[in-house]
Simulated scan of single mutants.
Amino acid sequence: MTFLTQGTWVLVADSEKALFLENTTDAQNPNLKVRRKDEQENPSDREQSANRPGRFNDGPSVHRSAVDDTDWHQLAKERFASDLADRLYKMAHKGEFERLVLVAAPEVLGELRKNLHKEVADCVVGEVAKNLTNHETSKIEDMVKQALENA
């Protein structure tokens, strides 16, 4: 099956960055052009936390246990996938793409799948569970083409 036909969009994402690419040529020699770049500023959890972890009494004894603090860094990563799904929904409604390939780290791909609206899910023609956000576009073209051919 041919996945990367002309006009197919490719979303390359991790938990903090997303590249929206469009194939301007055919499937044999894909030429992905950047249409949009999104990046989330997500400092480490230590920088986002305001307090030390809390503690509570275990009952009548003098023993006290620590309570885990909220991991704000992890929450922001999970929220990014949800925000991406919403962005894709808006783009689909504007008619910006009809075919979409999702390329993301496995955990991000899972979060994306959970959050995709039906209109976007119906446009998905392929998935690649790899983190390619830090690669050059030419490398992404080759790796996505190869992964989809072997799927």
Rank of each mutant, 00 (worst) to 15 (best):
T2G: 05
T2D: 13
T2Y: 10
F3W: 04
F3I: 02
F3H: 06
L4Y: 06
L4P: 00
T5A: 07
Q6N: 11
Q6Y: 05
Q6H: 09
G7D: 07
T8V: 11
T8W: 12
V10H: 13
V12S: 06
V12I: 11
A13C: 12
D14P: 07
D14S: 12
S15G: 13
S15P: 03
S15K: 03
S15N: 14
S15R: 12
E16K: 09
E16H: 09
E16V: 02
E16Y: 09
L19F: 03
L19A: 01
E22W: 03
E22Y: 00
N23R: 10
T24D: 09
T24Y: 02
T24G: 05
D26P: 00
D26F: 01
A27Y: 11
Q28K: 10
Q28I: 04
N31D: 15
N31L: 12
K33H: 12
K33E: 14
V34H: 00
V34L: 15
V34I: 15
R36K: 04
R36Q: 11
K37A: 11
D38C: 07
E39R: 09
E39H: 05
Q40T: 12
E41G: 08
E41Q: 14
P43N: 02
P43T: 09
S44N: 08
S44T: 13
S44G: 06
R46Y: 09
R46P: 02
E47W: 01
S49Q: 14
A50V: 07
G54E: 07
R55G: 01
D58R: 14
G59W: 07
P60S: 10
V62G: 15
S65T: 08
V67M: 15
V67A: 13
D69P: 05
D71A: 04
D71S: 01
D71I: 05
D71K: 04
W72P: 00
W72Y: 14
Q74V: 05
A76G: 01
A76S: 09
A76E: 13
A76N: 13
K77Q: 13
K77I: 03
E78R: 10
E78D: 12
E78S: 09
S82W: 14
S82L: 15
D83A: 10
A85I: 03
D86L: 11
L88M: 09
L88Q: 03
L88R: 01
K90F: 02
K90H: 04
M91E: 12
M91R: 04
A92N: 04
F97Q: 05
E98R: 14
R99Q: 15
L100N: 11
V101F: 08
L102Y: 00
V103W: 11
A104W: 10
A104F: 12
A105N: 02
A105H: 11
P106V: 08
V108A: 06
L109K: 07
L109D: 02
G110H: 00
K114D: 06
L116V: 05
K118Q: 12
K118G: 04
E119F: 06
D122E: 09
D122V: 00
C123V: 10
V125T: 10
V128R: 07
V128C: 01
T133S: 00
H135R: 13
K139N: 09
E141D: 09
M143R: 14
M143T: 09
V144Q: 06
V144P: 06
K145M: 10
Q146S: 08
L148N: 05
E149W: 03
N150W: 11
N150E: 15
A151W: 08
A151Q: 13
A151I: 10
